[in-house]
Computed example of a mutant assay.
Amino acid sequence: MSGTGPVEPADPTRATAADDPTGTNSPRAEPDHDIIGTDSPRLSDRWHALPPRVRHGALAAGAVAAATAAVLLIPQPPAAAPPDQPPPPRPSAVTDVRYLGIAGTPATEPTGDFLFEVTVRHGPPVTVDTISTTLTGLRTLTTPDTPFTVRSGTTQRLTVHISVSRCSGLPLDPELPILDVTLRNTDAIQQHSFIFGDPYSRDLSALLHSTCDDI
């Protein structure tokens, strides 16, 4: 009686070699080293292989890109500063003083009240610091009291109280009586002389005659 023992596993390598002595069916061994280079064309070879028209177009595009980058890197000049604002006008250039007449009846005493109005046409507000007469022997007070401020585009009514303190040497018929007015705004302080015509001259002469004729 014949029998078979346990089947021993066959050696795959030896079994394959036995079955295929030529080794044509044996599995291929994996390479034991890395590939560090290929035979692919170099970049310069690819460049020279391009048609001349393509190469010229690429060169032109590169030149344009380089020029654009150079322009972008040039520092830009700072923005121009806004033009300077003109200075505000001198107070005397925008202030008018106009004579209105006597307050009440003509003066018969050493003091008379003379009405004026002060107008500021434009610009910053103007402050009237002082008002005085140029004639020696006269004193002045005002209502409202100085200093007072007149805003742009407005008019302030003003009463100047003029009194005779001394008649000696005082001209009784001044032709061009003057008021000296000190004006101030954000630009300057000025003393300006305002000359008034015949109405103010006549009214002031009436005050001087009524006070000084008998002296």
Rank of each mutant, 00 (worst) to 15 (best):
D203I: 04
I215A: 05
L73Q: 02
T108N: 10
V181A: 05
N25E: 15
P52D: 09
D203R: 02
A67Q: 00
V128D: 10
R151T: 11
P9T: 07
G104V: 09
P51T: 09
P199M: 08
I35P: 04
G197Q: 09
A49V: 07
P78W: 02
L141Y: 13
H192K: 14
R46P: 10
T134E: 12
I131K: 02
G112P: 04
L135W: 09
R53P: 11
M1K: 04
G5P: 04
P31G: 08
P41K: 13
R14C: 08
R14M: 09
T108C: 07
S152L: 00
P91D: 00
L135R: 04
A17C: 14
P86E: 01
R42F: 13
F148M: 14
E117C: 00
T154M: 14
D214T: 15
C167S: 04
Q76L: 06
L179H: 04
G123I: 05
D20Q: 15
V164N: 07
H209A: 13
R157N: 13
P75V: 05
P9H: 04
R14T: 12
H56P: 00
D45M: 07
P31R: 11
W47K: 06
A17I: 11
V97F: 12
T146L: 02
A58Y: 06
A29R: 14
G169V: 06
T111K: 07
P83R: 06
D39A: 15
Q190D: 14
L100V: 12
S92D: 08
F148E: 14
L172N: 00
S193C: 05
S205L: 02
P86D: 03
T119E: 07
R151K: 06
G5V: 01
N25P: 00
L176Q: 15
R121F: 02
T146S: 01
G153C: 11
V94M: 12
G153Y: 08
P75C: 01
D20A: 10
A107M: 04
V126Y: 04
P86T: 00
C212M: 03
S163W: 15
I102L: 01
D39Q: 15
E117V: 06
L183V: 12
C167M: 08
S210P: 01
V71T: 07
P124K: 01
L43S: 11
S132P: 02
Q191T: 15
S152V: 00
L138V: 09
D39T: 13
G104N: 03
D180M: 07
G137P: 10
T95M: 03
A18D: 11
P147S: 08
R121N: 01
P6M: 02
C167A: 06
P177W: 03
L141I: 12
V150I: 13
H192A: 13
S44I: 14
R98E: 13
P75Y: 00
L179Q: 06
A93F: 00
I35G: 02
L170C: 07
T149I: 03
D214G: 02
R202D: 12
R42E: 11
L115K: 10
G104T: 05
I215S: 11
H122K: 02
A66W: 00
V71N: 01
Q156C: 04
I189R: 10
P27Q: 02
T130S: 15
G123E: 04
D34L: 15
V160C: 09
S193N: 14
L43E: 06
A79V: 10
L135P: 03
D198A: 15
R98N: 06
D45R: 13
T127L: 06
T22I: 10
P12K: 09
H122W: 05
P125A: 09
P199C: 12
P174C: 08
I74S: 02
